[in-house]
Design a protein around this nucleic acid. Structure first.
Lengths: 213, 213
DNA sequence: GTCTATATACCGATAGAC
DNA sequence: GTCTATCGGTATATAGAC
């Protein structure tokens, strides 16, 4: 890339002036920085990723980065928000759509796989958070609220008679989401399996199991 | 604990003299050190856990620890070996037991859940390894070999006709082990669910699915 | 907005006294 | 075997020149 080496990495993005004359976002591309940061966090681990390493991969300097970002934690918080916002939106859509509990549960499962594929890096990061800082604990609380909503959906589907009632709803939803979440460990977009086929396979295994009949 | 504070943490264990007069293991309790180390690695992350923090929790000093252990990586390697040895042993037992592929697969699933419950800390650590050092890459290679063996078992069970043949064996075994491995994220021994009930629920969901029939 | 230089702290690991 | 002291390195983050 023949750009000025001092600006090759953190490159300005399209930005738009609002009515008050202020930019509605910074003139450089925060999203691009975030993408690289999240990729690096997932490769080496959040704690093990240094700001220097991030700056290097961005083609900038540490100080230039600090001018735009308050620190490593801001990047983490923004990435976790991105993943959680999308997952929460799936739950809202399922509620709005109505239908039987089984319908809504299937919608949530498919939607979760979709978000996971769509936002693979930030969801991967989210699933690796352990709760060692306030930011991580806040994210874990939001995850937990999502889990509780899914468990309630499983209970409702059992009460309807559309799901087996011999399994504990909490255990069931944990196993279910364990299976779905594990997709981040191996799925790579652009491979032989597209997002729809992946969602089909996942929901089919979850509902019908592996045994031939 | 009224012991001498300088030895309160790294306490001697029973040790036995062999024929050649040498101790068959160090006089202090390496296993106890390892347990604390693995617990800390799982809490804070391996990279984020300092030797100082480990020494502090053990009630020893950094230097005393270094006298017994070559470094952080030795602790990691030993913990990963512990988990992998147990998992590989399940595969061997399944092969030795014989029977149909479906029988052997069910044996492996149950066995994996058992190892996971038995060795929860070291398996948890194993599942979080990303391959950033030689030790981690070696562990990942052993994990991969296990995955390939399970995939082969799924294929054999499909050929037998006991498992659905409309799913890709690789995808199937990944989803299967994703579900099983996710157990480390929430299962705590001593809770309402014992190991047998957990294995029953897991294998039942995997084979029969959630739909009521 | 980006630069060089630096402050301050902690890291893993070791030396040498006891 | 454990101690204190310290090495060299790296971390996050900032100051001040340009």
């Amino acid at each position: 890339m023949g750009d000025n080496p001092t600006t090759a990495g953190v490159r300005p993005a399209a930005s738009f002036r609002r009515g008050n004359g202020r930019l509605d976002r910074p003139a450089y591309d925060l999203d691009a920085v975030l993408d690289v940061a999240v990729a690096l966090f997932n490769e080496r681990g959040y704690e093990a990723t240094s700001i220097s390493a991030l700056a290097e991969r961005l083609g900038t300097s540490k100080s230039a980065l600090y001018y735009h970002v308050s620190g490593k934690e801001e990047l983490l918080a923004r990435a976790l928000d991105r993943a959680l916002d999308r997952l929460e939106s799936v739950l809202e859509q399922a509620t709005d759509a109505g239908g039987t509990a089984a319908d809504r549960l299937a919608f949530v499962l498919r939607g979760a796989v979709g978000v996971l594929v769509d936002e693979l890096p930030s969801v991967t990061l989210l699933l690796r958070v352990r709760g060692n800082t306030d930011i991580e604990r806040t994210a874990l609380r939001r995850r937990h609220d999502i889990d509780r909503a899914v468990t309630a959906l499983v209970e409702a589907a059992q009460a309807e008679g559309s799901l087996r009632a011999d399994l504990d709803p909490g255990t069931t939803s944990r196993l279910l989401f364990g299976m779905i979440n594990s997709i981040v460990e191996w799925y790579r977009p652009g491979g032989p399996l597209d997002a729809r086929a992946l969602a089909d396979a996942t929901v089919s295994v979850a509902l019908d199991g592996l045994r031939s009949r």
